[in-house]
């Protein structure tokens, strides 16, 4: 009984911690997308910080719903996000390069 209660408390606080971490990394990615100077550096933020933030958020969901049944779906979702998100960022950066958008270098006054 007490062991089960302790496990549940641990899971609750693990969910809280993972959600907060996910929020933090998503916040980092938002700041990056808003503040970085050109599309290439923004794509870098989108593929890394945002994937990590989504990963933490989905891990929290997986722990909440339990790993049997529905939790498997969130693990699948995690895998899917981890595969597709960097690819999408690659596609966008590649399109930007094909369009001839110049990368930002020091001294450039773009924001």
């Amino acid at each position: 009984m007490t062991a089960a209660a302790a496990t549940e408390t641990a899971r609750v606080w693990l969910v809280v911690a993972l959600t907060l971490l996910g929020l933090f990394f998503s916040f980092v990615s938002m700041v990056g997308v808003l503040r970085l100077p050109d599309v290439y550096s923004r794509a870098h933020t989108a593929s890394q910080a945002d994937t990590l933030g989504a990963g933490f958020g989905l891990a929290a969901v997986a722990i909440t719903v339990g790993l049997a049944g529905a939790g498997f779906k969130s693990v699948l979702l995690l895998f899917f996000i981890f595969v597709t998100n960097p690819t999408a960022a690659h596609a966008i950066a590649r399109a930007a390069f094909e369009e001839g958008i110049v990368p930002w270098i020091e001294g450039d006054d773009r924001r």
């Binding site: 998503s26 997308v33 933030g53 989504a54 958020g57 979702l77 998100n85």
Partner: peptide
């Protein structure tokens, strides 16, 4: 496109949560 993609990832997390 990049912003909407990041937005979409956020929405996926919102839906899951």
């Amino acid at each position: 496109v990049l912003a909407v993609n990041v937005l979409g990832t956020n929405t996926v997390v919102i839906l899951a949560i």
